[in-house]
Simulated scan of single mutants.
Amino acid sequence: MNTLVVYESMWGNTKAVAEAVARGVGEGVTLVGVAEAPTPVPEGIDLLVVGGPTHAFSLTRASTRRDAIAKGAAANPAAPGIREWLEQLPTSSHLNIATFDTRVGSVRHLPGSAAKAAGKEVRHHHLGRLVETMSFYVNDMSGPLLDGEAERAHAWGQSLAGMRAAHGQGPTQLGGSDQR
C-alpha cells in the first residue's frame, strides 16, 4: 500500500495528528505539508489522507488563515490550504481518500468540520472514493492536542491500514465518526 498524507497546520496540532496517522499506517507512507503536496497525486498512491484545521465550521480560507496568523499562528500567508489543493486535483476513480480535521474540544458538538468539508470537495470534484472522516480535538485555538488524541490518531492510521489490507483494494464504506 502506498499512502500520501497531506496536511495543513497553523499551530502544529494538525501536523502532529498527521504524523501520528502516518506512523499508524506504517510502511509506504509519504507525509507532506499542503504547500509541498504534489498535483496531481502521484501514480501508485492508493490511499490519500488529507487533514486540516477547522476554521469557521469548514476548511480554511485565505481570510481565516490571515486571522489565525494575526492571532499568532506560524503559517505562511501565501501558502495554499487544503481547499485550494483539492480544487487543483484531477478526477480519479481509483483513489481511496480519508479526511481528518482538528477542532476545539470545548465546541466539538457544533456543526461543520474541515474533515466533512474536505469530504464534500472529494465528492464534488470526483477525486476518488471517500472512505472515512475523523475529527481530533485540541484544547483551544492554538492547542495543545487534548490528552490521548495523538494516540487516537495513531490508532486511526492503523485502522486505515487494516481496512486496506482486509479489503485488498482498499476500504469501501464510510466508516469514520466525528465522535470520540
Rank of each mutant, 00 (worst) to 15 (best):
A150S: 07
L160Q: 03
W85C: 08
G52T: 08
E87I: 08
P171T: 09
F136T: 00
W85H: 07
A73V: 05
G128H: 00
H94M: 15
P53R: 06
F136Y: 00
H126Q: 12
N2Q: 15
F136Q: 00
A161N: 09
G24F: 01
V122L: 06
Y137D: 05
V50T: 05
A155N: 11
T172A: 15
A68P: 13
Y137E: 03
L31Q: 00
S177I: 07
P53N: 08
S113D: 04
L160Y: 08
A118R: 04
A16V: 02
V122I: 07
G128R: 01
P40F: 04
G143M: 00
G170I: 04
A35I: 03
G26N: 07
G105V: 06
V107Y: 08
N13K: 02
R164H: 11
A74Y: 13
I45G: 02
P40W: 08
R23T: 06
T3G: 07
G52Y: 13
A37R: 06
R83L: 10
T99C: 08
E121T: 11
G33P: 11
S58G: 09
S142D: 13
E43H: 13
Q158N: 10
G157H: 03
P144E: 03
I97K: 05
L110W: 12
S63K: 15
H154A: 11
T3K: 07
Y7D: 06
M134F: 09
T54E: 07
G26C: 05
N2L: 10
Q179F: 09
M10A: 15
V122T: 03
F100K: 01
Y7M: 06
L127D: 02
T39V: 14
R123Q: 14
V138E: 01
G148H: 02
L174A: 15
G81K: 10
L110C: 11
W156K: 02
G44N: 00
R61C: 05
W85D: 10
I97E: 08
V138P: 01
K116P: 05
S113R: 00
M163V: 13
V6W: 07
W85Y: 11
A165E: 11
D140V: 12
H55A: 03
S113I: 03
K116G: 14
